[in-house]
Design a protein around this nucleic acid. Structure first.
Lengths: 194, 194
DNA sequence: GTCTATAAAGCGATAGAC
DNA sequence: GTCTATCGCTTTATAGAC
Protein backbone atom coordinates (compact mmCIF):
# COMPACT_ATOMS: atom_id res chain seq x y z
CA UNK A 1 0.00 0.00 0.00
CA UNK A 2 2.51 2.54 1.24
CA UNK A 3 5.19 1.57 -1.24
CA UNK A 4 2.65 1.50 -4.05
CA UNK A 5 1.60 5.06 -3.23
CA UNK A 6 5.16 6.28 -3.21
CA UNK A 7 5.71 4.59 -6.54
CA UNK A 8 2.68 6.35 -7.94
CA UNK A 9 4.02 9.67 -6.70
CA UNK A 10 7.43 9.07 -8.26
CA UNK A 11 5.81 8.02 -11.53
CA UNK A 12 3.86 11.27 -11.68
CA UNK A 13 6.91 13.30 -10.77
CA UNK A 14 8.90 11.54 -13.47
CA UNK A 15 6.33 12.34 -16.12
CA UNK A 16 5.91 15.96 -15.03
CA UNK A 17 9.67 16.48 -14.86
CA UNK A 18 9.98 15.17 -18.40
CA UNK A 19 7.13 17.38 -19.59
CA UNK A 20 7.82 20.67 -17.84
CA UNK A 21 11.13 20.46 -16.05
CA UNK A 22 11.85 21.05 -12.39
CA UNK A 23 11.17 24.78 -12.18
CA UNK A 24 7.80 24.68 -13.90
CA UNK A 25 6.58 21.55 -12.17
CA UNK A 26 4.56 22.45 -9.06
CA UNK A 27 3.80 20.27 -6.09
CA UNK A 28 0.12 21.09 -6.55
CA UNK A 29 0.23 19.51 -10.00
CA UNK A 30 1.84 16.39 -8.59
CA UNK A 31 -0.77 15.89 -5.89
CA UNK A 32 -3.56 16.65 -8.36
CA UNK A 33 -2.14 14.02 -10.71
CA UNK A 34 -1.77 11.40 -7.99
CA UNK A 35 -5.08 12.32 -6.38
CA UNK A 36 -3.92 12.95 -2.82
CA UNK A 37 -3.63 15.97 -0.56
CA UNK A 38 -0.46 18.00 -0.48
CA UNK A 39 0.11 17.40 3.21
CA UNK A 40 0.03 13.67 2.53
CA UNK A 41 2.75 13.96 -0.05
CA UNK A 42 4.93 15.84 2.40
CA UNK A 43 4.67 12.88 4.80
CA UNK A 44 6.50 10.81 2.18
CA UNK A 45 8.91 13.39 0.77
CA UNK A 46 10.25 16.29 2.77
CA UNK A 47 10.71 18.75 -0.11
CA UNK A 48 10.28 19.31 -3.82
CA UNK A 49 13.99 18.63 -4.31
CA UNK A 50 13.56 15.30 -2.54
CA UNK A 51 10.79 14.47 -5.01
CA UNK A 52 13.03 15.20 -7.97
CA UNK A 53 15.85 13.19 -6.45
CA UNK A 54 13.55 10.18 -6.09
CA UNK A 55 12.62 10.39 -9.77
CA UNK A 56 16.27 10.69 -10.75
CA UNK A 57 17.23 7.69 -8.62
CA UNK A 58 14.51 5.72 -10.35
CA UNK A 59 15.70 6.54 -13.85
CA UNK A 60 19.33 5.91 -12.89
CA UNK A 61 18.33 2.48 -11.61
CA UNK A 62 16.48 1.79 -14.83
CA UNK A 63 19.69 2.76 -16.63
CA UNK A 64 21.75 0.41 -14.45
CA UNK A 65 19.30 -2.39 -15.24
CA UNK A 66 19.66 -1.72 -18.96
CA UNK A 67 23.42 -1.65 -18.57
CA UNK A 68 23.37 -5.06 -16.87
CA UNK A 69 21.10 -6.43 -19.58
CA UNK A 70 23.47 -5.27 -22.34
CA UNK A 71 26.49 -6.52 -20.44
CA UNK A 72 24.88 -9.96 -20.20
CA UNK A 73 24.21 -10.04 -23.94
CA UNK A 74 27.81 -9.12 -24.68
CA UNK A 75 29.37 -7.74 -27.84
CA UNK A 76 31.82 -5.00 -28.75
CA UNK A 77 32.16 -2.16 -26.25
CA UNK A 78 31.25 0.50 -28.78
CA UNK A 79 28.14 -1.44 -29.74
CA UNK A 80 27.09 -1.60 -26.11
CA UNK A 81 27.61 2.15 -25.79
CA UNK A 82 25.48 2.74 -28.87
CA UNK A 83 22.78 0.47 -27.52
CA UNK A 84 22.83 2.38 -24.24
CA UNK A 85 22.45 5.72 -26.03
CA UNK A 86 19.66 4.26 -28.15
CA UNK A 87 17.85 3.17 -25.01
CA UNK A 88 18.29 6.65 -23.52
CA UNK A 89 16.87 8.28 -26.63
CA UNK A 90 13.92 5.89 -26.59
CA UNK A 91 13.15 6.84 -23.00
CA UNK A 92 13.34 10.51 -23.92
CA UNK A 93 11.18 9.87 -27.00
CA UNK A 94 8.56 8.25 -24.77
CA UNK A 95 8.44 11.36 -22.59
CA UNK A 96 9.84 9.50 -19.62
CA UNK A 97 13.19 11.20 -19.22
CA UNK A 98 13.08 13.69 -16.35
CA UNK A 99 14.98 16.84 -17.26
CA UNK A 100 16.69 18.80 -14.55
CA UNK A 101 17.85 22.28 -15.50
CA UNK A 102 21.59 22.18 -14.89
CA UNK A 103 21.39 25.73 -13.61
CA UNK A 104 19.09 25.42 -10.60
CA UNK A 105 21.34 25.88 -7.63
CA UNK A 106 19.04 24.61 -4.88
CA UNK A 107 18.38 21.43 -6.80
CA UNK A 108 22.04 20.85 -7.63
CA UNK A 109 22.95 21.25 -3.99
CA UNK A 110 20.21 18.86 -2.91
CA UNK A 111 21.30 16.23 -5.44
CA UNK A 112 24.95 16.59 -4.51
CA UNK A 113 24.05 15.90 -0.87
CA UNK A 114 21.74 13.00 -1.72
CA UNK A 115 23.69 9.80 -0.92
CA UNK A 116 21.47 7.40 -2.87
CA UNK A 117 21.38 9.63 -5.95
CA UNK A 118 25.15 10.12 -5.87
CA UNK A 119 25.73 6.39 -5.42
CA UNK A 120 23.62 5.48 -8.44
CA UNK A 121 25.16 8.24 -10.54
CA UNK A 122 28.71 7.21 -9.70
CA UNK A 123 27.97 3.53 -10.27
CA UNK A 124 26.52 4.23 -13.70
CA UNK A 125 29.46 6.49 -14.52
CA UNK A 126 31.89 3.76 -13.50
CA UNK A 127 30.14 1.12 -15.54
CA UNK A 128 30.00 3.27 -18.65
CA UNK A 129 33.58 4.39 -18.02
CA UNK A 130 34.62 0.75 -18.30
CA UNK A 131 32.96 0.39 -21.68
CA UNK A 132 34.51 3.65 -22.84
CA UNK A 133 38.07 2.63 -22.01
CA UNK A 134 37.43 -0.77 -23.59
CA UNK A 135 36.18 0.90 -26.76
CA UNK A 136 39.18 3.20 -26.83
CA UNK A 137 41.54 0.28 -26.30
CA UNK A 138 40.20 -1.65 -29.28
CA UNK A 139 40.30 1.49 -31.42
CA UNK A 140 36.58 1.93 -32.01
CA UNK A 141 36.32 5.18 -30.03
CA UNK A 142 38.90 7.95 -30.55
CA UNK A 143 41.73 7.56 -28.07
CA UNK A 144 42.48 11.26 -28.42
CA UNK A 145 39.27 12.11 -26.57
CA UNK A 146 39.36 12.20 -22.76
CA UNK A 147 37.07 9.43 -21.39
CA UNK A 148 35.47 12.13 -19.27
CA UNK A 149 34.40 13.97 -22.43
CA UNK A 150 32.97 10.80 -23.96
CA UNK A 151 31.00 10.07 -20.81
CA UNK A 152 29.56 13.59 -20.61
CA UNK A 153 28.68 13.53 -24.30
CA UNK A 154 26.77 10.28 -23.87
CA UNK A 155 24.98 11.53 -20.75
CA UNK A 156 24.03 14.71 -22.57
CA UNK A 157 22.02 12.69 -25.12
CA UNK A 158 19.42 12.28 -22.35
CA UNK A 159 18.50 15.94 -22.76
CA UNK A 160 19.41 16.57 -26.38
CA UNK A 161 17.03 19.27 -27.63
CA UNK A 162 17.50 18.14 -31.24
CA UNK A 163 15.24 15.15 -30.64
CA UNK A 164 12.33 17.37 -29.67
CA UNK A 165 12.92 19.74 -32.59
CA UNK A 166 12.96 16.90 -35.13
CA UNK A 167 9.87 15.34 -33.56
CA UNK A 168 8.14 18.71 -33.78
CA UNK A 169 8.96 18.87 -37.50
CA UNK A 170 6.96 15.69 -38.00
CA UNK A 171 8.90 14.58 -41.07
CA UNK A 172 10.59 11.54 -39.57
CA UNK A 173 9.51 8.53 -37.58
CA UNK A 174 10.71 8.06 -34.03
CA UNK A 175 13.12 5.34 -35.06
CA UNK A 176 14.51 7.45 -37.91
CA UNK A 177 15.13 10.32 -35.52
CA UNK A 178 16.96 8.03 -33.10
CA UNK A 179 19.10 6.60 -35.90
CA UNK A 180 19.98 10.10 -37.09
CA UNK A 181 20.97 11.21 -33.61
CA UNK A 182 23.09 8.10 -33.12
CA UNK A 183 24.88 8.90 -36.37
CA UNK A 184 25.64 12.49 -35.44
CA UNK A 185 26.77 11.43 -31.98
CA UNK A 186 29.16 8.67 -33.00
CA UNK A 187 30.08 9.58 -36.57
CA UNK A 188 29.70 13.36 -36.53
CA UNK A 189 28.35 15.77 -39.10
CA UNK A 190 31.37 15.69 -41.40
CA UNK A 191 31.72 13.09 -44.13
CA UNK A 192 34.66 10.69 -44.14
CA UNK A 193 37.79 11.28 -42.06
CA UNK A 194 38.90 14.83 -41.42
CA UNK B 1 20.56 58.46 -22.84
CA UNK B 2 17.40 56.45 -23.27
CA UNK B 3 18.98 54.04 -25.70
CA UNK B 4 22.02 53.68 -23.49
CA UNK B 5 19.84 52.72 -20.55
CA UNK B 6 17.97 50.14 -22.59
CA UNK B 7 21.28 48.72 -23.72
CA UNK B 8 22.39 48.46 -20.11
CA UNK B 9 19.19 46.63 -19.24
CA UNK B 10 19.60 44.17 -22.11
CA UNK B 11 23.22 43.58 -21.15
CA UNK B 12 22.22 42.69 -17.60
CA UNK B 13 19.40 40.48 -18.83
CA UNK B 14 21.80 38.73 -21.18
CA UNK B 15 24.25 37.99 -18.40
CA UNK B 16 21.58 36.83 -15.97
CA UNK B 17 19.93 34.64 -18.60
CA UNK B 18 23.29 33.00 -19.27
CA UNK B 19 23.92 32.53 -15.57
CA UNK B 20 20.56 31.38 -14.25
CA UNK B 21 18.20 30.87 -17.16
CA UNK B 22 14.81 32.45 -17.72
CA UNK B 23 12.83 30.81 -14.94
CA UNK B 24 15.31 31.58 -12.18
CA UNK B 25 16.07 35.10 -13.34
CA UNK B 26 13.87 37.60 -11.50
CA UNK B 27 12.99 41.11 -12.58
CA UNK B 28 14.12 42.32 -9.16
CA UNK B 29 17.61 41.00 -9.87
CA UNK B 30 17.69 42.79 -13.20
CA UNK B 31 16.74 46.15 -11.74
CA UNK B 32 19.15 45.67 -8.84
CA UNK B 33 21.93 44.92 -11.33
CA UNK B 34 21.14 47.91 -13.52
CA UNK B 35 20.48 50.15 -10.55
CA UNK B 36 16.99 51.41 -11.41
CA UNK B 37 13.52 50.96 -9.99
CA UNK B 38 11.32 48.16 -11.22
CA UNK B 39 8.59 50.51 -12.43
CA UNK B 40 11.19 52.28 -14.57
CA UNK B 41 12.13 49.05 -16.29
CA UNK B 42 8.49 48.38 -17.10
CA UNK B 43 8.37 51.72 -18.95
CA UNK B 44 10.91 50.27 -21.39
CA UNK B 45 9.80 46.64 -21.55
CA UNK B 46 6.23 45.52 -21.00
CA UNK B 47 6.96 42.07 -19.57
CA UNK B 48 9.66 39.64 -18.48
CA UNK B 49 9.19 37.75 -21.74
CA UNK B 50 9.79 40.97 -23.66
CA UNK B 51 13.05 41.37 -21.76
CA UNK B 52 14.21 37.91 -22.72
CA UNK B 53 13.21 38.49 -26.33
CA UNK B 54 15.32 41.64 -26.45
CA UNK B 55 18.35 39.72 -25.21
CA UNK B 56 17.74 36.97 -27.76
CA UNK B 57 17.43 39.49 -30.59
CA UNK B 58 20.71 41.00 -29.50
CA UNK B 59 22.59 37.70 -29.54
CA UNK B 60 21.02 36.70 -32.86
CA UNK B 61 22.21 39.97 -34.36
CA UNK B 62 25.70 39.36 -33.01
CA UNK B 63 25.50 35.94 -34.70
CA UNK B 64 24.42 37.52 -37.98
CA UNK B 65 27.34 39.93 -37.74
CA UNK B 66 29.73 37.04 -37.21
CA UNK B 67 28.16 35.21 -40.14
CA UNK B 68 28.71 38.23 -42.38
CA UNK B 69 32.30 38.56 -41.20
CA UNK B 70 33.03 34.90 -42.01
CA UNK B 71 31.25 35.15 -45.34
CA UNK B 72 33.46 38.12 -46.27
CA UNK B 73 36.62 36.20 -45.39
CA UNK B 74 35.51 33.27 -47.54
CA UNK B 75 36.72 29.67 -47.55
CA UNK B 76 35.12 26.24 -47.65
CA UNK B 77 31.55 26.00 -46.40
CA UNK B 78 32.36 23.41 -43.76
CA UNK B 79 35.17 25.59 -42.43
CA UNK B 80 32.79 28.51 -42.14
CA UNK B 81 30.34 26.31 -40.25
CA UNK B 82 33.09 25.20 -37.89
CA UNK B 83 34.16 28.80 -37.35
CA UNK B 84 30.59 29.72 -36.55
CA UNK B 85 30.28 26.93 -33.99
CA UNK B 86 33.62 27.94 -32.51
CA UNK B 87 32.37 31.49 -32.11
CA UNK B 88 29.19 30.21 -30.46
CA UNK B 89 31.17 28.12 -28.00
CA UNK B 90 33.40 31.10 -27.20
CA UNK B 91 30.35 33.19 -26.39
CA UNK B 92 29.02 30.43 -24.16
CA UNK B 93 32.44 30.05 -22.53
CA UNK B 94 32.45 33.78 -21.75
CA UNK B 95 29.11 33.43 -19.96
CA UNK B 96 27.36 35.58 -22.54
CA UNK B 97 25.05 33.05 -24.14
CA UNK B 98 21.50 33.47 -22.82
CA UNK B 99 19.87 30.11 -22.26
CA UNK B 100 16.14 29.77 -22.68
CA UNK B 101 14.59 26.57 -21.32
CA UNK B 102 12.92 25.00 -24.33
CA UNK B 103 10.08 23.88 -22.09
CA UNK B 104 8.67 27.20 -20.85
CA UNK B 105 5.41 27.60 -22.68
CA UNK B 106 4.71 31.26 -21.96
CA UNK B 107 8.15 32.21 -23.18
CA UNK B 108 7.95 30.08 -26.29
CA UNK B 109 4.62 31.64 -27.15
CA UNK B 110 5.98 35.13 -26.60
CA UNK B 111 9.00 34.46 -28.80
CA UNK B 112 6.89 32.89 -31.53
CA UNK B 113 4.76 36.01 -31.64
CA UNK B 114 7.73 38.37 -31.55
CA UNK B 115 8.23 39.62 -35.14
CA UNK B 116 11.75 40.96 -34.69
CA UNK B 117 12.96 37.82 -32.91
CA UNK B 118 11.40 35.56 -35.54
CA UNK B 119 12.90 37.63 -38.35
CA UNK B 120 16.42 37.41 -36.94
CA UNK B 121 16.04 33.70 -36.20
CA UNK B 122 14.79 32.88 -39.69
CA UNK B 123 17.45 35.01 -41.33
CA UNK B 124 20.21 33.25 -39.40
CA UNK B 125 18.66 29.87 -40.19
CA UNK B 126 18.54 30.74 -43.88
CA UNK B 127 22.14 31.91 -43.95
CA UNK B 128 23.42 28.82 -42.17
CA UNK B 129 21.17 26.65 -44.32
CA UNK B 130 23.01 27.96 -47.37
CA UNK B 131 26.37 26.97 -45.93
CA UNK B 132 25.01 23.56 -44.99
CA UNK B 133 23.74 22.72 -48.48
CA UNK B 134 27.02 24.01 -49.92
CA UNK B 135 28.99 21.78 -47.58
CA UNK B 136 26.80 18.81 -48.46
CA UNK B 137 27.21 19.51 -52.17
CA UNK B 138 31.00 19.48 -52.00
CA UNK B 139 30.94 16.30 -49.90
CA UNK B 140 32.36 17.72 -46.68
CA UNK B 141 29.16 17.24 -44.67
CA UNK B 142 27.23 13.96 -44.87
CA UNK B 143 24.58 14.18 -47.58
CA UNK B 144 22.63 11.46 -45.83
CA UNK B 145 21.77 13.87 -43.01
CA UNK B 146 18.74 16.15 -43.44
CA UNK B 147 19.93 19.80 -43.54
CA UNK B 148 17.35 20.45 -40.84
CA UNK B 149 19.15 18.04 -38.53
CA UNK B 150 22.50 19.63 -39.22
CA UNK B 151 21.09 23.09 -38.49
CA UNK B 152 19.52 22.00 -35.21
CA UNK B 153 22.69 20.21 -34.17
CA UNK B 154 24.74 23.36 -34.74
CA UNK B 155 22.23 25.55 -32.92
CA UNK B 156 22.23 23.13 -29.99
CA UNK B 157 25.95 23.79 -29.43
CA UNK B 158 24.87 27.13 -27.95
CA UNK B 159 23.51 25.30 -24.92
CA UNK B 160 25.69 22.20 -24.86
CA UNK B 161 25.97 21.17 -21.19
CA UNK B 162 29.22 19.32 -21.89
CA UNK B 163 31.09 22.60 -22.04
CA UNK B 164 30.09 23.54 -18.49
CA UNK B 165 30.89 20.06 -17.18
CA UNK B 166 34.38 20.06 -18.69
CA UNK B 167 35.01 23.58 -17.44
CA UNK B 168 33.94 22.48 -13.97
CA UNK B 169 36.45 19.65 -14.09
CA UNK B 170 39.21 22.22 -14.49
CA UNK B 171 41.55 19.88 -16.36
CA UNK B 172 41.50 21.61 -19.72
CA UNK B 173 41.94 25.14 -20.97
CA UNK B 174 39.04 26.97 -22.54
CA UNK B 175 40.54 26.57 -26.01
CA UNK B 176 41.15 22.86 -25.49
CA UNK B 177 37.54 22.37 -24.44
CA UNK B 178 36.30 24.19 -27.53
CA UNK B 179 38.54 22.10 -29.78
CA UNK B 180 37.31 18.90 -28.16
CA UNK B 181 33.68 19.90 -28.62
CA UNK B 182 34.28 20.82 -32.25
CA UNK B 183 35.79 17.38 -32.79
CA UNK B 184 32.88 15.51 -31.25
CA UNK B 185 30.41 17.66 -33.16
CA UNK B 186 31.90 17.30 -36.63
CA UNK B 187 33.89 14.06 -36.38
CA UNK B 188 31.92 12.14 -33.74
CA UNK B 189 33.05 9.91 -30.92
CA UNK B 190 33.91 6.89 -33.06
CA UNK B 191 37.31 6.47 -34.66
CA UNK B 192 37.66 6.23 -38.42
CA UNK B 193 34.73 5.43 -40.70
CA UNK B 194 31.93 3.25 -39.38
C1' DG C 1 -1.49 8.90 7.29
C1' DT C 2 -5.12 11.46 5.39
C1' DC C 3 -7.49 15.57 4.97
C1' DT C 4 -8.78 21.06 5.10
C1' DA C 5 -7.06 25.33 5.89
C1' DT C 6 -3.50 28.51 6.17
C1' DA C 7 0.90 30.37 6.91
C1' DA C 8 5.09 32.67 4.94
C1' DA C 9 7.56 34.20 1.24
C1' DG C 10 8.58 35.42 -3.55
C1' DC C 11 6.99 36.62 -7.87
C1' DG C 12 5.41 39.80 -11.96
C1' DA C 13 3.19 43.84 -12.59
C1' DT C 14 0.99 48.47 -11.38
C1' DA C 15 -0.70 52.89 -8.88
C1' DG C 16 0.22 57.27 -8.08
C1' DA C 17 3.19 61.06 -6.43
C1' DC C 18 6.90 63.86 -8.17
C1' DG D 1 10.56 58.82 -16.88
C1' DT D 2 11.83 58.02 -12.18
C1' DC D 3 10.73 56.71 -7.76
C1' DT D 4 8.23 54.32 -3.36
C1' DA D 5 4.83 51.45 -2.03
C1' DT D 6 1.76 47.92 -2.84
C1' DC D 7 -1.41 44.84 -5.22
C1' DG D 8 -2.74 40.21 -6.57
C1' DC D 9 -1.33 35.90 -7.38
C1' DT D 10 1.33 31.59 -7.06
C1' DT D 11 4.36 28.77 -4.70
C1' DT D 12 6.43 25.76 -1.06
C1' DA D 13 5.58 24.09 3.21
C1' DT D 14 3.09 23.31 7.71
C1' DA D 15 -0.60 23.22 11.56
C1' DG D 16 -3.97 20.75 13.51
C1' DA D 17 -8.30 18.04 13.41
C1' DC D 18 -9.67 13.28 12.45
Amino acid sequence: MLQAREDAIVASVNRLLAEKGFDLMTVDEVVADVGIAKASLYKHFTSKEELAAAAMVKVLERSLDEHARLEAIGGAAVQKLKAMVRWTLQVQMAGEMPSLPAQNSSLRAALGNHPVYMDRLLRLSDELGGWITDAQSDGSVRSSLPPELVLYTLFARACDPVLGLLKLGGQYSDEQIIDLLLTTCFDGLAAGAS
